[in-house]
Computed example of a mutant assay.
Amino acid sequence: MELRELECFLVLAEELHFGRTGERLYLTQSRVSQLLRALETRIGARLFERTSRRVALTPLGESFLAGLRPAYDALKGTVEEAREAARGVAGRLRVGFQGTADGRVMAAIDAFQRDHPGCAVDITEIPLSDPFGAVHRGEVDTAIVLLPVREPGLALGPVFSRQRQTLAVSVRHPFADRSSLSAEDLADCPLVAPAGTAPGYWREAQAPAVTPGGRPVPRGPLVTTLQEGLTQVAANRGGMLLCRPTADYHGRGDITFVPVTGLPDSALGLVRRRDADTARLRAFAAAVAAAAEAR
């Protein structure tokens, strides 16, 4: 069995288009057709139904895909692990972060690069409104995001920086003079909330629709970035829940941060795709855990 034939089948099963499959594999359409015919000859049956208008998996093709995908991913992972073991922790690691790459994040990156000078680290901000998309799409290798994380395709760990929540409000807001708030007080303040493609459970955790006692919380502006949210807060268009370190980092004269009791602590976590467990990622996770423990 030729590995290239299997790769061609897997990509064609995703694209269902010979032209796009060829583009992804840097092959001509005729070469894609040739590889597919060779695979179907080995198996002894058609894996795709092909007409001038559409390409679709046959029932046998569906079954073959279900069995092949995990086996191919495991084989690819084994080869990658062997390659990394041979050359050590090297290459390039792309790290995403939400909002702020603060002292905790930078301490972990500095420690990782000190211990693994052969591995370069690219640092990329990911939108507040899309905490997991860049990891799912392979745009970053790992990301530090706000919890909760309930994505079946992502692995979580370590979890760190559990902190009490604060409510960011304009200095003109009635809450600005309060020394603290209860979660029930949120019913009297529209909450700035993440927009976009973030999962519903995650958006609810950052801007709950109801208080723990069941009182509805008014919905404030929808934003895609932390800075956009803080600008809405400064304009007195709503409050925004933030952890204490983020509040301290973004201190400014037109916003005050009031502690809130009765809410779960905020926490950060490192996420990666479950099918992307590499030596680089394991070493970086260890650096994050060590930096968090040191602080």
Rank of each mutant, 00 (worst) to 15 (best):
Q113W: 01
V159A: 08
A291S: 15
S266H: 08
G213V: 05
H116L: 03
D177K: 13
R273Q: 10
A183H: 00
H17R: 13
T246I: 13
A71L: 13
A13F: 00
R54C: 04
D110G: 10
L16R: 12
A107C: 09
A285E: 03
E184I: 04
A195D: 11
A294L: 11
W202T: 06
T51F: 02
F48P: 01
G238Q: 00
E204M: 07
S33T: 14
G88S: 04
E139C: 04
V210H: 15
A108M: 08
R282F: 05
R252C: 09
A13E: 01
G239M: 03
R280K: 11
A82M: 14
L57E: 05
D115R: 09
R137L: 14
R69H: 06
D265M: 14
T278P: 05
T256A: 03
R274S: 13
G220L: 05
S52E: 13
E204F: 10
R83Q: 13
P221Y: 05
G99C: 03
C119T: 04
R94C: 03
R87D: 09
A13P: 01
F18Y: 10
D141C: 01
R178G: 07
A187T: 06
R215G: 10
F64Q: 09
L241N: 01
E5A: 14
V135T: 02
A289Y: 01
L191M: 08
G99M: 02
P245F: 03
E7I: 10
G44H: 12
P194Y: 04
L10C: 02
D73Y: 08
D110Y: 09
R237A: 05
E125H: 05
P158C: 06
R114A: 13
V233F: 02
I43S: 12
I43M: 08
V217L: 10
R150S: 12
A209F: 09
T211E: 07
D102I: 11
S161A: 15
A74L: 14
A294I: 07
I109A: 00
R94V: 10
L186I: 07
C189V: 14
V145R: 00
A66D: 13
A234V: 04
A267P: 05
